[in-house]
Design a protein around this nucleic acid. Structure first.
Length: 466
RNA sequence: GGAACCAUCGCCAAGUUGGUAAGGCCGCAGCCUGCAAAGCUGCUAUUCGCCGGUUCGAGUCCGGCUGGUUCCUCCA
C-alpha cells in the first residue's frame, strides 16, 4: 500500500507502526446539523481506505469522532430550546443512518467529546504542567505555540506573526497570535459548562481529537496512530494544533501519515446553504439511491475536488447499471472463487493511494469481457460462478454491486405498480406470440411512458425502472 | 497580501520513477432483434491551458504567463 501523505506531499509506502495492523483516526462531524455532501465524501473516502487495508490483510482499527460540544451546538440549543443531548443524539443518529445508506461501514470506535472529558482534562493539565499551556485571568487555557519549535511542520505555515497580530488583537491575553484555546471558561449562567481544575468551561475543538486518540490508541512510542484523516480544510489549523498538543503532551508524534480529502462543489459552485442546491445528503438520498451516490461520490479520486452534478451522476449510474445487468445474467447461481488476476489488478489499483479510477476501469473491462463470453456461450457455468465471485469481491472492497439485481433496477417501484407492469409485459408477450407487433409496440410505449424500460432476453422479457 | 493545489477527447477521468495518451458517458457504423432495448464489435485526442527551456525523446522535469480551486477565521 502506498499512501499520499499530505505533510510530506509525496506518496509513501505504508509501513504501520505495528506489524500487520493499521490504526486510523478520522475527524468526524460536529453534530449541530444534517450531514452534507462533503461529509459524505469524506466518510466514503476513509471507508474505502479501511476496506482496502482490510482487503490487503491489515487488522484495521478505525476511529471517527463526533464533536458534540461546540459553539454551534450551543447556538442550536439556544435557538431551539432543546437540550444539548437531544440535539447531538438526533444528529448523530441521522448521520449514522445516512452514512449506512451510502454503505459506509461503522467505525470501530466512535468517541464523543462529552464522553472523553476525563482524557481532555488530563491532557490539558499535562500541557500546563509541562509548561506548554497557560491559564489566563478568566480561566481560559491556551496552548503556547512558541514553546513548540515544530509548530507549523504539518501544514507548512510560516510564522507571519506581524500580519496575524491585527486579526486577533481582541484576544489580548494570548501570548502569541497563533496560540489557541484548549479550554474555554464559562462565560455566563446559560453557558454549557463542565467542571475542570482550571475553570468551569468546555474544551476547545482541537484538544478533543488529541485526547481521544491518546485515550483509545497505544501507539508505539514514536507515533500514536498510523493514519490521521479528514477534510482538506482541517489541515490548518486543526491538524496542526492537534499535532502540536499531542507532541508536547506525549513526547512523540501523533500520526505517521496524514490524509486529506478534497472538497465537494455543486454544479461548479461552492457548496453553501444559501445556494439552496442539494447541499444536504438527506436531500440527495431522496432522489438517488445510496448505492448510486456512493458509486458516484467515490468515482473521483479522494484528493481531487469533486463537482457534484446530475449529468455526471447519471453517467456513474449507467456504469453501475451495466454491472447489475451482468449480474442478472449470472443468476441464479453460486459464486466460486474470485479470479486471481482480477483480484490482484483491482487490489493493486486501490493499494496505490486508492486509485479508484483505475479500479473502476478494471471492473468495466471485467464486465465487458464476461458479457462477451456469455454472448458466445450463455451457459458457461464456471465463468458465471467466477464472475459472481468477482462481484462479491467488488462489493467487499468497494461497497457496491452486492444487491440482488432485480431489486436494484426496481428501487422505488411498489407492489401495485409492479403487478401492473408485469401484467402489461404478459399482454405484450401474448401479442408478440400472435405476431401482433403493433399491439406489442403500443404496450412497450405505454411502459416507456410509465418510466419503465423493457428488454427481451432468451429467458423472457425483463424490465427496469429507467 | 502570503501559501498550496489543479488545468488531458463534447462531458467525467487515469496516467510513481520522462519513451511516445486507460476507462466511462455521449456520438457514429455493424452484429443481434419482428422493431427496439440490453449486450457485443469497430471508429472517435499525432495530442495533453499558453510560451519558452532541459533532453535523442516531456502530458510527465525547469522557468514564465493565463485560468480555476483551496488555505491563511468555524468548516468534511
Amino acid at each position: 500500500m502506498v499512501i499520499f501523505d499530505s505533510v510530506t506531499k509525496t506518496k509513501r509506502p505504508f509501513e504501520p507502526i505495528k506489524e500487520g495492523e493499521a490504526s486510523i483516526y478520522v475527524c468526524g462531524p460536529t453534530v449541530y446539523d444534517d450531514a452534507h455532501l462533503g461529509h459524505a465524501r469524506s466518510s466514503l473516502a476513509f471507508d474505502l481506505l479501511a476496506r482496502t487495508l482490510r482487503a490487503l490483510g491489515y487488522k484495521v482499527t478505525m476511529a471517527k469522532n463526533f464533536t458534540d460540544i461546540d459553539d454551534k451546538i450551543i447556538k442550536k440549543v439556544e435557538a431551539t430550546g432543546k437540550s444539548m443531548q437531544e440535539i447531538t443524539a438526533y444528529y448523530i443518529d441521522r448521520y449514522l443512518k445516512e452514512m449506512a445508506q451510502l454503505g459506509v461501514q461503522r467505525a470501530d470506535i466512535e468517541p464523543k467529546a462529552t464522553e472523553s472529558l476525563d482524557a481532555i482534562e488530563a491532557m490539558i493539565q499535562r500541557l500546563i504542567d509541562k509548561g506548554f499551556a497557560y491559564v489566563v485571568s478568566n480561566g481560559d487555557v491556551y496552548f503556547d505555540t512558541s514553546k513548540d519549535p515544530r509548530y507549523g511542520e504539518i501544514s507548512h505555515k510560516v510564522h507571519d506573526d506581524e500580519e496575524n497580530q491585527s486579526r486577533v488583537a481582541h484576544n489580548s491575553e494570548k501570548r502569541n497570535p497563533k496560540d489557541f484555546a484548549l479550554w474555554k471558561a464559562c462565560k455566563g449562567e446559560e453557558d454549557i459548562c463542565f467542571n475542570a481544575p482550571f475553570a468551569s468551561g468546555r474544551p476547545g475543538w482541537h484538544i478533543e481529537c488529541s485526547a481521544m486518540i491518546e485515550k483509545y490508541f497505544d501507539g508505539n512510542g514514536e507515533y500514536s496512530i498510523d493514519i490521521h484523516g479528514g477534510g482538506a480544510d482541517l489541515l490548518f489549523p486543526h491538524h496542526e494544533n492537534e499535532a502540536a498538543q499531542s507532541r508536547c503532551a506525549t513526547g512523540h508524534e501523533l500520526a505517521k501519515y496524514w490524509m486529506h480529502n478534497g472538497f465537494v462543489q455543486i454544479d461548479g459552485e461552492k457548496m453553501s446553504k444559501s445556494l439552496g442546491n442539494s447541499f444536504f445528503l438527506k436531500d440527495a438520498l431522496k432522489v438517488y439511491d445510496g448505492e448510486i451516490l456512493r458509486y458516484y461520490l467515490n468515482s473521483v479520486h479522494y484528493r481531487n475536488d469533486f463537482n457534484f452534478n446530475e449529468e455526471d451522476l447519471l453517467a456513474a449510474k449507467k456504469r453501475l447499471d451495466k454491472l447489475y445487468r451482468l449480474k442478472k445474467r449470472l443468476l441464479p447461481g453460486k459464486a466460486s472463487a474470485v479470479n486471481p488476476t482480477f483480484k490482484k489488478v483491482l487490489l493493486d489499483a486501490m493499494a496505490d493511494d486508492l486509485n479508484i479510477s483505475v479500479a473502476l476501469s478494471v471492473i468495466d473491462e471485467m464486465v465487458a469481457a464476461a458479457n462477451e463470453k456469455l454472448d458466445e456461450n450463455p451457459k458457461e457455468k464456471a465463468l458465471k460462478k467466477e464472475t459472481l465471485a468477482n462481484l462479491e469481491f467488488i462489493d467487499t472492497l468497494l461497497g457496491f454491486g452486492g444487491k440482488e439485481p432485480y431489486s436494484y433496477f426496481q428501487i422505488g417501484v411498489d407492489e401495485t405498480l409492479k403487478a401492473q407492469i408485469e401484467a402489461l409485459i404478459a399482454k405484450r408477450t401474448e401479442a408478440k406470440r400472435a405476431k401482433d407487433f403493433a399491439a406489442a409496440d403500443a404496450i412497450r410505449d405505454e411502459l416507456t411512458r410509465m418510466g419503465i424500460a423493457i428488454m427481451d432476453t432468451p429467458e423472457g422479457t425483463v424490465w427496469e425502472r429507467a
